[in-house]
Nucleic acid binder design. Sequence first.
DNA 1: AATACGGGGTC
DNA 2: GACCCAGTATT
Length: 449
Amino acid sequence: MDDIIGNTQNTVAPSDQSKKKRPRRVVRPKPKSTQVEKSDDIEDINFTKDETVEIRASLLKWYDENQRDLPWRRISSKGEDEEDNEDTEESEKRAYAVWVSEVMLQQTRVQTVIDYFNKWMTKWPTLSHLAQASLEEVNEMWAGLGYYRRARFLLEGAKMIVEEGGGFPKAVPALRKVKGIGEYTAGAIASIAFKEVVPVVDGNVVRVIARLKAVSTNPKEAVAVKNTWKLAGQLVDLCRPGDFNQALMELGATVCTPSSPSCNECPISTKCRALLLSRCHDSVQVTDYPMKIVKAKQRSDFAAVTVVEVLEGPRMKDEAHPNSKFILVKRADKGLLAGLWEFPSVLLDGEADSVTRRDAIDHYLKSAFDLDPTKSCDIISREDVGEYVHVFTHIRLKMYVEWMVLHVKCFKKLWNKKQGEDDINWKFVDQQTLSCMGLTSGVRKKEKT
DNA sequence: AATACGGGGTC
DNA sequence: GACCCAGTATT
């Protein structure tokens, strides 16, 4: 059982490439120097058996001594190495915790996830608890974490697994069937929770492997991705796949970092080709790997936002209005920030002056709330409070914010309308409630009174 | 193969 | 301000 590394490609002959049709050795951007020898056909890159053995041992040893104490690592059982006598319930609980943590960790830093994970697990300690939650609850819990689709998938997945009654999926193909579980997350759950010998490839692994092998091609390209998975599959430890995978990622997160790696602290630096090259050539740096990717420029959006503060009682002159309420509107359940609550807002065509913005807002309030701010229907005040820029991955959103204070009798019809109906996509909330909905939090900060 | 999808740390 | 993160689904 010495080498189940699963491939014999270490000795692949150069001529082997000819069987692949893909146009290859096309121009590919290289970092700076061209006189450095490169492993330039990524499909031919492999770890030798010796490298594999040493990397596994060094990395696991390093991990045993240096791993961070993270909440989802505490769930995993200690002494159940004695085979499968662990009861199903315990195993399911661990898988659930790993699942939640892995989904939260998608594109999200460990530090950010910790608090959310603890809160989540307190509220929904097991799969069946989660399966009984509502989307509304789940969204609220997720507020501020980003990529809200993840929360919805988690909920839908929990319902699905519980309904099917077959227990938690254990193998990668079964896990992949669950919405929101992709190749990475499937590998993580299978290896960490169920000890399946499968690799994982995330941003950390891409970087570590690109450096180990000094791969200078675009890591996003399909061929490169495929090869990184292959290499990760060669490395993964057969006895402790979950620990090994976490070790590789943790190395990338704490030692082999994007911009200033601590190579002197790296347990596998002697196996690192990027480091070797950087020592031989002044023109090469470890951080040249992996190749930098140019990102698409984000588009610019503009929105007019209005904070509508509603007073029930008489206005108290120059005082805070502790009993006032605010209108919140629910976004569409598809697309950006799906199903989340925000202040009434309208998308604009572009930059807009104050008049144009108010026109847009007026029109919106009229159609959505049958409220006409142009008639002086007890509007107590209305003022521009500033401009805000919120940056998403792909959008730069400029918000023009105005603040409107008006009396409840401005829209009696709405006030009297029964809340809690399903089709309702807006609500009044008080100041307290407002503090738990994240997101357009930038706007909410304005309210300091 | 490219794009949609958040938010926050870090340099 | 740019980069990038324990990615996935959709186009």
